[in-house]
Write a protein that binds this DNA or RNA. Structure first.
Lengths: 139, 139
DNA sequence: TCATATTATCGTAATGATTACGATTTGTAA
DNA sequence: TTACAAATCGTAATCATTACGATAATATGA
C-alpha cells in the first residue's frame, strides 16, 4: 500500500480526497510500522490546529474499511499501519518503534485439520520484541 | 488450574483468602473460557451488592500476577481465564461463548531462526470462530 | 482467644481511548 | 458556479480501567 494507491481506493469507494486525508496517508507512509490514533493526532495537530477527534478516528476507520490500513491491538490500544495486501502473512512487531518484519510462515496451514468441527473466522499471529535498531538504543 | 491450586498460589505469595476471592475463582472454574471484568462483576453483584470496581480489577490483576489467570485482548477488552500451566500451547477461542480449545502446534519453533537479530519477548497465536455448540445455536 | 499489623474492600472520582452528534464547511460532478 | 453529498468542527458522552483515602476483614503469634 502506498499513498497513491490509497487515494485511488478512496475514490473507488466514492470518498473524497481532502488535504487532511492526504496528510494522514503521508504519516502512515513515513511511519512504516504500527502507530496509534494519538501518534497521528500529534502529527496532525501542528498542521491543523484543533483538529477534531471525530475526523481522526472516522478516517482511521474509513481507511481500515477500504483496505488501506490494517489494525492490531497492543496493550489495549489500537494500532494502525498500511496494509500489506500482497499475500497473507504475519508480523514481528517492535515494541519500541512499532516497525514490523514480515513472517512468511502461517501456522494455520498445519492446524485446519484439527479444527474440523469449528467454524474458523480469523486468526492472529504476532511476535513481539525489539528490532535490531532498538536493541542498540537500549545498550 | 483449579480453585484449590489458586488459593494455594495466593497463600504462597502472602495474600489472604477472602469470600469474594473464592467466589471469583468459582466463577472462572465454572466459566471454562475467556470472560471479561464485566462478566465477573455481573456474577458477583447479586452476591455482594455494590461490590467495588477496585476489588474486581485489583483481584483480576493479582490473579494474573501469581499465575492463576491468563489474559488476552478481544475487541479492545481484556478477557481472563484460568491458566493452563501444564505446557506451552495456544487456543482456538469461540467468539460466542468464550470457551477455548487447546492447540498443540506452536509456530515459534519454525520461526526463531529467521529472527536471529531480533530480541523476541513474546508472541501471540489465536484462532477465532464458533465452536460446534455455538454453531448449532446460530442455525 | 485476642490484639494487631497487614491486606482487602468500599465508594467514588479520575483517566484515557474511543464514539457520537448537530451545526458548519468543503469537495466534486454537472 | 451551483448544489448536494460528504467531511469536519467543537464538544459531550461512553466505556473500560485505574486510583485513592477511609474503613473493614484476615491471619498470625502472644
Amino acid at each position: 500500500m502506498d499513498q497513491n494507491k490509497a487515494i485511488k481506493q478512496l475514490k473507488a469507494h466514492g470518498y473524497k480526497t481532502t488535504a487532511k486525508r492526504k496528510d494522514m496517508l503521508t504519516f502512515f507512509a513515513e511511519a512504516d510500522g504500527y502507530r496509534t490514533a494519538k501518534d497521528l493526532i500529534n502529527y496532525l495537530e501542528p498542521l491543523y490546529e484543533g483538529i477534531s477527534f471525530d475526523t481522526v478516528y472516522r478516517n482511521l476507520h474509513l481507511f481500515h474499511d477500504v483496505g488501506v490500513l490494517e489494525t492490531t491491538n497492543l496493550n489495549g490500544e489500537k494500532h494502525f499501519r498500511f496494509s500489506c495486501s500482497q499475500h497473507h502473512h504475519h508480523h514481528f512487531i517492535c515494541k519500541d518503534c512499532g516497525k514490523t518484519k514480515a513472517l512468511d510462515v502461517c501456522p494455520m496451514d498445519d492446524i485446519r485439520q484439527s479444527l474440523e468441527d469449528y467454524e474458523i473466522e480469523g486468526h492472529k499471529f504476532e511476535i513481539y520484541g525489539l528490532c535490531p535498531v532498538c536493541q542498540e538504543e537500549w545498550n
